[in-house]
Computed example of a mutant assay.
Amino acid sequence: MRALPDDGSFAERFDAVVNLFTSFGYFEDDGEQLKVLRQIRKALKPGGRFVLDVMNATYTAEPLVPYSKRVEQGAAISETRRIEGGFVMKRIVVREAGRPPRRYVERVKLYSAETLTAMLYEAGLALDTVYGSYEGEAYDARRSRRMIMVGRRKEHEL
């Protein structure tokens, strides 16, 4: 997603690019995230549209549940969460009888609407609207769970 093939198979080929369910923000630095946005622009036809769905940073950070535990299909799953360096860090431990524990870490960057809008612009994309849910609710920085950004490829790359 940061480096589409340069053989022309992706350049200006798509009417729309969608990135849903917080599939953006997993790289360590903003420069890597920006590469993804530039590839979105590269893939869009002139006039092409994009949808970028991420967690709303304010909503996610305030009620963050620091610890939870559940049992699924006989496996005990514990999760710890915290904000660290602008990322939501989630550590997951899965315990099953007769097996050693499995440990995983998830990390996703939290972006404000202003920061992500600036990154879109820098990547050659223009933001048209922001929704707070898949039902099309208006975005509210304090109450919306999602930040669904909808826009288009700018006519002239910077």
Rank of each mutant, 00 (worst) to 15 (best):
P46F: 03
T22C: 09
V93C: 10
F10P: 02
P46V: 07
E155F: 03
K42R: 15
V54Q: 08
R146T: 02
V108E: 01
Y59I: 01
L37A: 12
Y134T: 01
R49M: 12
R152Q: 05
E32T: 11
G47H: 12
V130N: 01
S68R: 15
E155P: 10
V130L: 08
Y104V: 01
V105M: 14
L52F: 10
F21M: 09
G98E: 09
G98H: 12
D128W: 05
L52E: 10
V51C: 06
R107Y: 07
Y139T: 02
F14A: 09
R102C: 03
Y67M: 12
R145P: 00
H156I: 09
R153L: 03
A141H: 00
A75S: 14
L44A: 11
K45Q: 14
D128N: 04
D128H: 12
L34Q: 15
A61Y: 02
L34K: 05
A43C: 07
Y131R: 13
Y104S: 04
A57D: 09
G132P: 02
I40L: 13
E106S: 10
M1P: 03
L34V: 04
Y134D: 00
V94H: 09
P46H: 10
Q33N: 15
S112I: 03
D7I: 01
D6V: 01
Q73V: 13
R38W: 03
M147N: 04
E157T: 07
R2D: 01
G151W: 04
R70P: 02
L20R: 03
V93Q: 07
M149W: 11
M55F: 14
R153N: 04
D7Q: 06
I77G: 10
L158C: 02
G85R: 15
M149V: 10
T80L: 05
G151D: 07
V130D: 02
L20K: 05
A113M: 04
S78A: 14
Q33I: 00
E62Q: 12
L110F: 04
E84S: 13
A118F: 02
A75M: 13
R82I: 00
G136M: 05
R2A: 07
L120E: 09
L127F: 08
I148F: 05
L44E: 12
S23R: 07
M89T: 08
F24I: 02
V54H: 10
G48I: 13
V94A: 04
P46N: 12
S133C: 02
L34M: 13
E62I: 11
R38T: 09
Y134N: 05
R70K: 15
S144N: 12
A123C: 05
M149A: 11
K35F: 06
S133H: 01
N19Q: 04
R103V: 13
E79R: 14
M119Y: 05
P63I: 00
G25S: 13
Y67N: 05
A3V: 03
A76F: 05
R103P: 00
Y111H: 11
P63L: 01
T80Q: 11
H156S: 12
Y67S: 11
L37F: 13
E72M: 08
Y121M: 04
V150R: 11
V108P: 07
R95C: 10
M55S: 07
A97P: 10
A76E: 15
V93R: 11
L4H: 06
Q73W: 09
